[in-house]
Amino acid sequence: MALLELRDLNKHFGGLHVTNSVNLAFEPGEIHCLIGPNGAGKSTLFRLILGEHQPGSGDIFFAGDNITHLKSFARIARGLSVKFQVPGVFKGLSVRQNLEIALQRTHRAAELDREIDRLLAFLGLEAERNQTAGNLSHGQKQWLEIGMATSLKPRLLLLDEPTAGMSPEETFQTGEMVQRLNAEGMTVVAIEHDMAFVRQVAQRVTVLHLGQVFAQGSIDEIVADERVAAIYLGQAHHHA
């Protein structure tokens, strides 16, 4: 059974059909990358999955349950978690406090400190423990938020452009982080533009275009697909 399944999902913004009859299944244990040109509807799809938008029609199933009408926080409680596109850390609070707030809902006070230490080590942010999160570098903010999202021990982790603004080196480290989480059993769905990252981590790739599922397969299959190249080129042509 798929861990997350989208059935005939539709979403309109005015006359714009941003999610167009999307049927997608994410299997437990996989790392699945969503790619597609700007405006393909990738982030909207995340917002539908998280309950920030309500679909016009269609259903969302998580671990076999229909969660289409659940509130966002209730979906998180069931085992979804997300890292946003724009780093969503609590800027005015310390790194430690950011993690504490993420952890305190599911952890007892006695376990908090140990778990915070473990996460700081995992993220390579030990030295920044008492730093104000707003003062971190862009990449560190991304990592901190990934840490907050994973601290919930979700069954499914959604990552919206986890490597945006990162150096190639940082991107590679992020890829390793994602692979380690996956090895512990976490299913990961990532929206990503960075093809090096996709190549590094993706076990399956879905291409979205104009709100529809355009192609699906391994990274090699996708790269070899001339139609996929055409939509990216078409987009580039459009911009030029």
Partner: peptide, 19 residues
């Protein structure tokens, strides 16, 4: 903690599972 988290970033706070 949750109150200041909401001040800093309500969307993030909700997506950590808080109503």
């Amino acid at each position: 903690n949750v109150i200041v988290a909401i001040r800093e970033n309500p969307e993030r706070a909700e997506m950590l599972g808080y109503d």
